[in-house]
Simulated assay, not measured.
Amino acid sequence: MEKETKAYLYVLTCADGSLYTGYTTDLKKRLATHQKGKGAKYTKSRLPVELLYFETFSDKSSALKAESQFKKKTRKQKLAYIAEKSTPLDLDSFL
């Protein structure tokens, strides 16, 4: 049986106000990569980016499914989802 690894769905706010959604197994490392302009072509031209939201999953497959579903939402739906799910300690306790 495979050892399950934590995975994260994350949402960034880009300098132009747009949102970027992704998944990773190492959130701190992925954020640092984005900030260096190496995380994704989309965010490279929209620096700096800021972590707006993240969710933790028990495995990569669950995180990828959540990412796919999240990306299908409109911006308004994404922001409503984040507002509903977020707590003030989410980001502060992780970073």
Score class of each variant (00 low, 15 high):
Ser45Glu: 15
Lys60Arg: 15
Ser68Ile: 03
Phe54Asn: 00
Lys65Gly: 03
Tyr81Ala: 14
Lys73Ser: 10
Phe57Gln: 02
Gly37Pro: 09
Ala66Glu: 13
Thr33Val: 13
Ala40Lys: 06
Lys29Phe: 11
Pro88Tyr: 09
Asp90Lys: 08
Tyr42Ser: 10
Lys73Tyr: 12
Ala40Asn: 14
Lys85Trp: 04
Glu67Arg: 00
Ala83Thr: 09
Gln35Pro: 04
Ser93Glu: 14
Lys71Phe: 00
Ala63Cys: 05
Thr56Ala: 09
Asp92Ser: 10
Ala63Phe: 01
Lys85Glu: 10
Lys71Ser: 02
Tyr81Trp: 14
Lys36Glu: 10
Leu47Lys: 00
Gln77Pro: 02
Lys41Tyr: 14
Lys36Phe: 11
Phe57Leu: 04
Pro48Ile: 05
Glu55Cys: 06
Ser45Met: 15
Gly37Ile: 01
Lys71Gly: 00
Ala83Met: 11
Gly37Asn: 03
Ser45Cys: 12
Leu47Cys: 03
Phe57Met: 01
Gly39Asp: 08
Ser61Gln: 11
Thr33Ala: 10
Asp90Asn: 14
Val49Lys: 01
Lys29Val: 11
Gln77Trp: 04
Ala63Gly: 06
Lys60Val: 12
Thr56Phe: 01
Gln77Leu: 09
Ser45Ala: 12
Gly39His: 01
Pro48Glu: 07
Lys76Asp: 11
Leu51Ile: 13
Ser86Gln: 10
Arg30Pro: 01
Phe54Ala: 03
Ser61His: 10
Phe70Asn: 00
Leu91Asn: 10
Tyr81Leu: 15
Glu50Gly: 05
Glu50Lys: 12
Ser68Asp: 12
Leu31His: 01
Glu67Gln: 08
Leu47His: 05
Asp59Arg: 09
Lys65Ile: 03
Lys76Leu: 14
Ala40Pro: 10
Thr33Cys: 14
Tyr42Asp: 12
Leu47Gly: 01
